[in-house]
Amino acid sequence: MLTLQRRAAAISDSADEIAFFHDAVAEYTWARDVAEYTWARDVAGRSAGP
């Protein structure tokens, strides 16, 4: 989000493009990890049985 605010305030350069790419990769990685954790927790809860 910080990269988008910087880009809106000024003309972007190659450093901004690289920072935007890194931010996007970090957000994707975070979302993927959360999804995997949630899925694993749900599967473990179902297989525990009564």
Rank of each mutant, 00 (worst) to 15 (best):
M1K: 05
L2Y: 02
L2R: 09
L2H: 02
T3D: 07
L4H: 00
L4A: 04
L4T: 00
Q5M: 15
Q5T: 08
Q5Y: 08
Q5D: 13
Q5W: 07
R6P: 06
R6D: 10
R6G: 09
R7V: 04
R7Q: 12
R7E: 09
A10F: 03
A10Q: 07
A10S: 07
A10G: 02
A10V: 04
A10K: 01
I11W: 06
I11M: 07
I11C: 01
I11Y: 05
S12Q: 04
S12I: 02
D13Y: 01
D13N: 11
S14Y: 02
S14M: 01
S14K: 01
S14L: 05
S14I: 03
A15S: 15
A15I: 03
D16L: 05
D16P: 05
D16V: 01
E17M: 10
E17A: 06
E17P: 01
E17I: 03
I18C: 06
I18M: 13
I18F: 09
A19T: 07
A19D: 13
A19R: 12
A19G: 06
F20T: 02
F21H: 05
F21N: 09
F21M: 12
F21T: 06
F21G: 08
F21L: 11
H22T: 03
H22I: 06
D23F: 02
D23E: 15
A24G: 10
A24I: 02
A24N: 07
V25E: 08
V25N: 09
A26T: 12
A26F: 03
A26L: 13
E27A: 11
E27N: 13
E27S: 10
T29H: 04
W30C: 06
W30G: 06
W30I: 01
W30T: 11
R32A: 12
D33N: 12
D33A: 07
V34H: 08
A35G: 00
A35S: 10
A35Q: 12
A35V: 01
E36W: 11
E36F: 14
E36N: 13
E36C: 14
Y37Q: 15
T38A: 15
W39A: 14
W39G: 10
W39L: 15
A40E: 14
A40K: 13
A40R: 15
R41I: 04
R41D: 09
R41C: 09
D42K: 15
D42W: 01
D42A: 12
D42E: 11
A44R: 09
G45D: 12
G45R: 14
G45F: 06
R46D: 10
R46M: 10
S47L: 10
A48W: 13
A48G: 13
G49L: 15
G49F: 14
P50N: 01
P50H: 04
P50A: 00
P50Q: 04
